[in-house]
Amino acid sequence: MTIRTLTDWTGVVGTVMLGATAADGGTRSVSYTLGGESDLPFLGDPPSGHIPLVAFELCDDPAIWPAVVREYAGDLSNDPGKWAKAAEADYGADLVRLSLTSTRRKDFSGYAALKTTIQEVLRKCRLPLIVEGSNDPSIDSEVFAVCGEAGEGERLLLGTAEAGRYRSVAAAAMAYHHAVVAQSPIDINLAKQLNILLHEIGVPSDRIVIDPYTGALGYGFEYSYSVMERIRYSALKGDTDLAMPMISAPTDSLTVKEVRDAAPAARQDIAVKWEYYTALSSAIAGAAIVCVRHPRTVPLLKDTLAALWSGQTPGKV
């Protein structure tokens, strides 16, 4: 049964390219185009734009990483390169997001190690890479310069620009030809303002991925959900300042009380489901990339996204 939806859209979500293959001078096995949607997510046969991607998120310093993931991943979590390889080969992720948690340490100065880590990850895993740098303005400029340079030619997605600190990450992205994650705190207007700020210093739309900030399910997720819906809606209504693809990267999904306080036997399952519900909802709201941290979430999500996208249900009994 098919019936047409009624809304007349005038806008299209702009596209952003991630990852450079050999043809583009990089070493990735694949590159992705984000965006291009001219309707609401998953609507149409086939839907417009591209199927949402699942990014597996890992880090270079697991000390502040969710315990439930460390427990599951074991030693892998101490080796970003191997972990990234597992994300590609074992978990089936579409891309990898490397969170440079080492930069959160007090008096951080390990710039050289950052470079090594990024290069190692790029060597061991051929998927396009998202790099999440520091969140401290006093080291931003150096960190982003290192990240940008280490990934030169690979068309990374570099994060994170915020209204209070966007100049250094934007500068690194522009210098080394990467795209930028633009994060704002769960507000469509602030998202728009940040995009405008980035434009005004010369970052073009096709290098911006909006991160509207995803709160954990049960902890404000509904705000993020509605902001994502509003952003997509505005883009389709022709607001070019919001017509960029979105990334959903909840940071607290696996540290919520429901997971922390769960009985040990049930904890892994609850973690996976919590993350899965959040990520899938974000994709339905319009996220082009959904980030997850539990390896088991990746295949579950990919199956469901495929079913929502094409109508073919893998594993249907």
């Binding site: 209204a163 100049r167 303002q193 405008i196 700020l197 005004e200």
Partner: peptide, 10 residues
Amino acid sequence: IDRTGRINTV
């Protein structure tokens, strides 16, 4: 200043 009012210290 940028449009949020932040001073461009660069």
